[in-house]
Amino acid sequence: MRIEVIGGGSLGQLFAASAARGGAEVVLYTRTIEQAERIMDSGIQVSEATEHDAWKIRFPSIVARTVDHFSEADGKLRWIVLAVKQKHLNDSLLAKLQSNVRAQDRLFCLQNGVGHIERLMEALPEVPVYAAVTTEGARRIDAASVFHAGKGSTSFGRTASARQQSSVEQVQAEKMLMDAFGSGGLSLTVSNEIENAMYRKLLINAVINPLTALWKIENGALLEKEERITTMRAVFDEIMMIYSAAGIEAPLVWWEELLGVCRATARNRSSMLEDVSRGDQTEAAWISGGVVELARRAGKQAPINQTLLNLIEGLDK
């Protein structure tokens, strides 16, 4: 089995290094040749939040290339981990996937927000597409090192295209993937309710990401002041109202789970905070904007989430 990771950001480095540590054949595709050369030269170093010593994966355990070199594979089972942000899941990348991904390959999608699974299924109707939801906290330190800021878990599930494959083939491929990542230190489980998990993750991201980006704080700092918790609750309650109107099952226990994510990833800087700090475009259009679009479809308004979207996009350069 080969695991090919597209995207050299925080999650891309963490998942690629962990799969290689677990004994899988791993290729990491990066945006720049500088990053690929750095990884080929020195490997990827992973610093753990709860351990004193970092660990490193080097060539030949991991191979790094630029995404321009992404191509068809041989007859091996291939999992393609999409670790790019939604804003980078553009027409150019979709065209490259259409040209080089085979029906026997499998896509494992780590994007935040909503809408990407439908785009990928439309572009690659014969390819099994798996949605993944992770609570792993990761912060990219540089081109060849990542800080594993909070240990979490990852659920992934089959979409309609993946269910067309034989159940035996599915189970075998999923077990091989879980074994590889599990041996490397990442917990993966198969979920039969991945759509519900995606909406839970959307809610968590829609609360944590814009607020940490606007206040310029780490995740755990959201719980340090009553004013921050009150604002979090207001965003949470509006999303819960929208989910109810849209017919999405959303238990109230998600509030306690949201607080738990803040504690578990206390030292993590959200991806939106990282983007704002660098002056990059954020994923607000697919997170806060995704909530606003759900509200529109349900005949509701989302004034708090719309305001957060406006504030974040007002920061985008």
Rank of each mutant, 00 (worst) to 15 (best):
R2Y: 12
V5M: 15
V5R: 04
I6W: 08
S18T: 11
A24H: 04
V26N: 02
T30R: 12
I33S: 11
Q35M: 09
I39L: 05
I39R: 06
I39K: 10
E51P: 00
H52P: 06
W55D: 01
R58V: 15
P60H: 04
I62H: 07
T66L: 10
V67M: 03
V67I: 15
D68C: 05
F70H: 05
S71Y: 03
G75K: 00
K76Y: 09
L77M: 09
W79C: 09
K85G: 01
L89H: 04
N90I: 11
L94E: 10
L97H: 03
L97D: 00
Q98R: 12
A103M: 07
A103S: 13
A103F: 08
L107M: 15
F108V: 14
N112I: 02
V114W: 05
R119C: 03
L120P: 01
A123S: 13
L124Y: 11
V129L: 07
A131W: 01
V133M: 11
T135V: 05
E136C: 09
A144E: 13
V146S: 01
A149K: 01
K151C: 10
G152T: 02
T154V: 11
G157A: 09
G157I: 03
R158E: 14
S166A: 13
E174T: 01
D179P: 03
S183I: 08
S183C: 14
T189C: 13
I194Q: 04
N196A: 15
M198V: 10
M198Y: 08
Y199K: 02
K201C: 05
L202P: 00
I204L: 14
P210H: 06
K216P: 03
E218V: 13
L223G: 07
K225T: 15
I229W: 05
I229K: 13
I229D: 07
T230S: 11
F236C: 05
E238G: 03
I239Y: 07
M240F: 02
Y243H: 02
S244D: 10
E256H: 14
E257C: 14
C262A: 12
R267C: 15
V276H: 00
S277D: 00
W286L: 02
I287W: 01
L294F: 01
L294H: 01
L294R: 08
A295E: 00
K300A: 06
I304C: 04
L309A: 06
L311W: 05
